[in-house]
Design a protein around this nucleic acid. Structure first.
Lengths: 109, 109
DNA sequence: TATTTAATTAACAAACATGTTAATTAAATT
DNA sequence: AATTTAATTAACATGTTTGTTAATTAAATA
């Protein structure tokens, strides 16, 4: 598995995707704060965090009994870079679509 | 599963990721052209294509006995949009890293 | 130092993913 | 009309993922 496919695998789970989004908007948080015990057990969340960590998406910092997690910006950027590497493809294709829709509008007029 | 997590799930497999990359660079291709029989059977590839299709990443066009596949630019753009939505996060974080590295350089000088 | 707090690893069950070969579908060719 | 080509769906085995509860680890507090 490459860096990218592993990052995608990590983000393919709703729980993990939500964790990454939350850490990006709220910044560093302890494992406990990421857990809603009515939805999932602590061990289950702990393993999700491990998957995210192994994929390089988040990092862990220890503070006493707490494990503080945060998103690694490099990981997010490598995904952004990939989409940008192919930007000419989807941009050009969407331009053609825009042009097509515009010509439909013209036909209506 | 949301649109995005499903797209990530589809791209988390090496074979499917390679298919998407190939379709983006070479354009529309029949299922047969995407298959290397020394690596995988036709039914296996057929199912990978189905996963990509259900995730909205590719579309199928029928021409006689052939099934022609191509990437849906909207799907690629929705991933790009997500990374851009969080751009301020990873950009700012990386700027701080850049600043840190720059100050290290200064120390050396 | 005993207890509480925070989070992990271990063991296990259920569900899902992914490969195979065999069977099926449907259009094109002979 | 029979055969070939292109690709799919079906059936099944195996490995991985993801949840649970129980047990463990380790730091902080009483």
């Amino acid at each position: 598995m490459t860096i990218l496919t592993q990052a995608f695998a990590a983000l393919s789970d709703e729980t993990r995707f939500a964790v990454v989004e939350r850490l990006m908007s709220e910044g560093e948080l302890p494992a406990g704060a990421l857990l809603d015990p009515s939805r999932m057990s602590a061990p289950a969340m702990s393993r999700h965090l491990k998957v995210l960590r192994k994929a390089g998406l988040i990092k862990q910092r220890i503070d006493g009994t707490k494990r503080l997690y945060s998103v690694r910006p490099e990981a997010m950027q490598s995904i952004a870079d990939w989409t940008m590497d192919h930007r000419s493809f989807w941009e050009a294709s969407l331009d053609r679509l825009d042009a097509h829709l515009a010509s439909d509008e013209e036909t209506k007029t």
